[in-house]
Design a protein around this nucleic acid. Structure first.
Lengths: 204, 204
DNA sequence: GAACTTTTTCCAGTATAATGGAATCCCCAT
DNA sequence: ATGGGGATTCCATTATACTGGAAAAAGTTC
């Protein structure tokens, strides 16, 4: 949340060291899994996707490396996006609990602004949940996050102003807002009392 | 939230009618956009990705159809997943506000359970935000959502029990939880007073 | 077990992905 | 205008993706 986008030309990531070839094997297992779950033959999937039986067989057995267009056709035959086709199943876990007093989740404890993390620290970080407490005059100003990032916010107590993309809106207790977080954005306490906010950050 | 998963063998989607070839052109524009935003040369990107300058040029100019492995290498050079590389930019919008009194967002108003939606109704539905009020004895029981769906929940007031995947945990005010929502799950008020919960549903 | 049907794998050929080197283009400095 | 350097495109070649038909394997029925 205090992410700072670097200034100047961004340097390329280090050359990828993990073999991209591994993705083909993963795709192969995944296609076979999805197909057999549905009780489809290679012929059926070939018909649905427009990819030859032979190619599908090679993908499943040998981890053949299809072109992007072929991969997308397969994904669509399963009614999925590329991401959905290739993602690994989420880790199965039971209820994960974060207690109110758990200091590890006290993200920031300043006089004007206190932040508590409400989502587990070790889960993949595409969605995060926070409780933010702003004293009168307190503000939470953020640099742009990754492109596409949005935030949901609800005011549980107090009054705040939300700023994003050159727009600003005043919110009272019970009000909510949704706005871009891939531009500079801020939450400002504009009342005379403490404000309590629940904030969902969606990195997408 | 009351989604019912279908039973029986699933039939294949109709044969894809949208040309998968369009994706290559989209990829080409996207790679050029990302590269020029970063002020990288083809040589720089080639170095970072391990894909030849020529191939990158062909992708950008001619919409060449790379293999999956090559596409993934390019994505990784930009520090992205395949989905992120290929997705279209989210709709740009200003701050969207939902007022406390907006009846359109009162999702359920029963005696034992009241639900208010805190995220905009017309936004894409990969993440949803709710406020749930449960009277003593009240419960919110849900059928499984899509595979991979999770929920984050924080208790603002009262005491509840969260049930998911055969596990159950008791939570008090200030506590939070994260759990699977692609299995039957429930939130039950186990206290003597009203419980107020903020709930994030992540459809992934 | 035998016969039949369906599914998957193998095979050979064609199409195209992907490369490295050379040529061309573009920009900047003198 | 000229020269130099960096960036991009072109070119010819190699490697591999992808196919349809045939063979083999697997499954089903009597």
């Amino acid at each position: 949340m205090s992410f700072r986008k670097s200034r100047g030309p961004e340097k390329p990531a280090r050359k990828t060291t993990e073999p991209a070839d591994a993705v083909s094997h993963h795709l192969g297992s995944r296609v076979r899994q999805l197909r057999t779950e549905r009780d489809w033959s290679l012929e059926t999937l070939a018909g649905a996707s427009g990819v030859s039986r032979s190619m599908l067989s090679q993908i499943e057995r040998e981890g053949a490396n299809p072109t992007l267009a072929v991969t997308l056709r397969i994904a669509r035959a399963f009614g999925m996006t590329l991401g959905e086709l290739l993602e690994t199943p989420g880790a199965v876990s039971s209820v994960i609990v974060i207690r109110a007093a758990d200091k590890a989740y006290h993200y920031r404890s300043e006089k004007l602004c206190r932040i508590r993390t409400l989502s587990p620290l070790n889960l993949e970080k595409d969605v995060e949940f926070y409780e933010v407490l702003l004293a009168p005059g307190g503000a939470l100003r953020s640099s742009p996050h990754f492109e596409g990032t949005r935030e949901f916010l609800t005011v549980q107590q107090g009054a705040v102003r939300v700023e994003s993309a050159g727009d600003a809106e005043a919110l009272e207790a019970g009000d909510s807002a949704s706005y871009r977080a891939d531009v500079p954005h801020a939450i400002v306490n504009i009342g005379k009392t403490d404000a309590v906010i629940f904030l969902v950050v969606i990195y997408r």
